[in-house]
């Protein structure tokens, strides 16, 4: 257990520089986007009201009030997309860098006097924490950015949103910001399960190399099919046999099953089949 925690700490530290850079990039870009939006809005409003003598009410009804939601355009979401992409790539890198780095660190890791599955669990935990960390950052950043709009734009020209309201504006990215504990558990539970499935597929490749790419792919698909079985049945049967709450528990069970299967298989691979 102690060595597992040490390994988690170690894995996070290894990624820390890039991670901090990602976080800083997100803060800078998003803040800049908000400032640019607010200033251009203010300039437009000033032009309209003072130069063109349009009454404030008319301007507001034509142009709409300023809010953080107005600023959440593609540029605002770009850092989030980049964070997601980097973390996805890092899910592979976290393993492959140990084999392909200048000094093959995987020797060191596999020879530690600890259960080898700890290495796997630690890497998954590290990824999970890094995702949570970035999401938390965004959750802190949004109210701050909202505050920034409040500071820059007079109350007459703006509309304030609650955090929930702001998150609505994310559209599809909303999945990252669940609003209830249940939603959180479901979204991030599925996310963690996917990380385990992916890691196991990677280990299969690492054990069987060329053939392993195929086997790993098959495992990935197989695990997903098991997890999605009820939904697949639903599509073909066209009828809903299960109440939503029953569906939930079936999915929960299948999720646990797939996760346990991935961890169990990885345990076997790391002890009996792994190659340096």
């Amino acid at each position: 257990m102690k060595s597992y925690l040490k390994l988690v700490n170690f894995e996070i530290n290894r990624f820390l520089k890039l991670y901090v850079a990602l976080a800083a990039f997100t803060v800078i870009v998003q803040t800049a986007v908000v400032i640019i939006h607010a200033r251009s809005y203010l300039a437009t409003a000033k032009d309209a009201v003072t130069k063109d003598m349009i009454p404030r009410e008319t301007f507001l009804s034509d142009y709409g009030p300023m809010s953080i939601v107005r600023a959440m355009d593609g540029w605002f979401q770009l850092p989030i997309a980049i964070c997601i992409a980097v973390l996805l790539i890092y899910c592979f890198m976290i393993w492959y860098r140990d084999w392909f780095g200048k000094n093959t660190f995987i020797y060191r890791l596999l020879m530690l006097p600890t259960n080898r599955i700890h290495i796997y669990l630690a890497k998954a935990t590290a990824i999970f924490f890094m995702v949570l960390g970035l999401v938390s950052l965004e959750l802190l950043l949004l109210p701050a950015e909202s505050k920034l709009v409040e500071l820059m734009v007079p109350i007459d020209y703006r509309e304030d949103y609650s955090l929930n309201g702001i998150m609505e504006a994310f559209g599809d990215l909303n999945i990252l910001f669940p609003k209830t504990i249940t939603e959180f558990l479901i979204h991030y539970g599925i996310g963690l399960m996917m990380v385990f499935i992916l890691f196991t597929s990677i280990l299969i490749e690492r054990c069987y190399r060329l053939k392993g790419i195929l086997y790993g792919g098959i495992y990935f698909a197989f695990a997903l099919v098991i997890f999605l079985l009820p939904n697949i049945v639903l599509i073909f049967a066209h009828t809903n046999y299960l109440y939503p709450v029953e569906m939930f528990f079936v999915e929960l069970l299948l999720g646990i099953l797939v996760t346990a299967m991935s961890i169990g298989l990885s345990h076997y691979l790391l002890n009996k089949k792994i190659r340096v």
């Binding site: 660190f105 995987i106 006097p113």
Partner: peptide, 19 residues
Amino acid sequence: SKRTFEKVAFIPDAITMLP
């Protein structure tokens, strides 16, 4: 097993610590 790693040390032909 993991216990034997406190009994046997392996020194590979290249260093295996991060550069």
